[in-house]
Design a binder for these strands. Structure first.
Lengths: 147, 147
DNA sequence: TTATCTGCAAAAATTTTGCACTTGG
DNA sequence: CCAAGTGCAAAATTTTTGCAGATAA
C-alpha cells in the first residue's frame, strides 16, 4: 500500500466523498508499482468498472495532486504520469532501451542541491532528477570480439 | 550566439536547405535566453515574418532536435520547451514564484550520478535535474516585522 | 435533502500530417 | 529542374469543462 492510510480515511481527512470511482482509482494507484499516465490508469480502472469515464480519472488525479497525495511527473514523452506520494522522496533512473523506471535516492546529491540553491539565494521547494541510462556492456574474462 | 556555428553553415553541415523560415526560427532560437515553447517561438518568429506557420515551427524544432542542435525540455507544465544545445551541459533552478529559469552546473553532482548509474549496472545517456525553488527570506539586522 | 461528484459530449490546447504549391541549390 | 520545404486545414492527442442527472453523507 503506497498511500499512508487507507482510502476511506484519506478521503475523510481531505474532505472528499468516498465514491466508487475514487475508491477504484485510488486502489489502482495504490497497487501499481509503475508511473502510469491517465490513459493507462483509465484502462486499469475500466477493467474493474467499465463505467468510469476518463474525465473522472483526470479530475481525480488533479484533485489528489492538489491534496499532495499524488505526484505528477512529465518524463520526456510529454504525457503526465502519476505516482502515489507517500513512500519518501526518490529520483528516477530510466532505462532508455526498455523504458523501465528504477527509483533511487542519494542524500549526498540532495545535500549538494541545498547548497546550490542557498548559494543562489533560494530555498528548495522540490526537485526532480532523472538519469537516462543504458545497460553497461557485460565484461567477460576471455576474448570475444562481438558487440 | 548559442549555436556553435552560423546558421548557413549549420544547415549545410546537416544537409538542410537554408530557407527563410528556418533562418528566422534559428535566429530567434539563437538569440533568446529563455526556454520558449512552440507557441512562444511562433509568436516571436511571426513578429519578423507573419507568414510562417506554426506547423513549420513544429517541424523545424523536431528536425533540429533530431540533429542534436536543440534540446527539448518538459518542465512540469506539460508543454515542450526548447533551448539551443551547444553551450555545455547544465541543469535548471526554477523559481516557482516567477517562473524564471536559472542555469547551473555541478561537477560533483554529475560525478555522483555516474557512480549511482554504475552501481545499478548502467551507463548514463543523459540526465536532467531541476530544482524548484523560492527566494530565501531576506535577513535584516534591525527589527521590522512585516513580510 | 443537498452539495458534491459523475458521465457525457463538446471544447480547448497541443502536436502531427496529407496535400498541393513554392523554392533553394 | 525537382527534391526538399512550406502553408493550410484537417486530424490526432491530451486535457478541461458545462451541464444535467446521480449519489454520499
Amino acid at each position: 500500500m503506497k498511500f499512508g492510510t487507507d482510502i476511506a480515511t484519506l478521503c475523510r481527512e481531505n474532505g472528499l466523498r468516498l465514491t466508487r470511482p475514487r475508491r477504484i482509482i485510488m486502489k489502482v494507484l495504490s497497487e501499481t508499482t509503475g508511473h502510469p499516465d491517465v490513459v493507462e490508469l483509465h484502462r486499469q480502472v475500466n477493467a474493474i468498472d467499465p463505467g468510469i469515464s476518463i474525465a473522472t480519472v483526470y479530475r481525480t488525479v488533479s484533485l489528489l495532486q492538489d491534496k499532495g497525495l499524488l505526484e505528477r511527473h512529465t518524463f520526456n514523452d510529454g504525457r503526465a504520469r502519476y505516482e502515489a506520494a507517500d513512500h519518501g522522496h526518490h529520483d528516477h533512473l530510466i532505462n532508455v532501451e526498455t523504458g523501465d523506471v528504477i527509483e533511487f535516492h542519494s542524500d549526498e546529491i540532495e545535500r549538494l542541491q541545498e547548497e546550490i540553491a542557498r548559494k543562489h539565494g533560494y530555498s528548495i521547494v522540490s526537485h526532480r532528477l532523472e538519469i537516462y541510462v543504458k545497460p553497461l556492456p557485460r565484461k567477460r574474462s576471455g576474448r570475444t570480439g562481438q558487440t
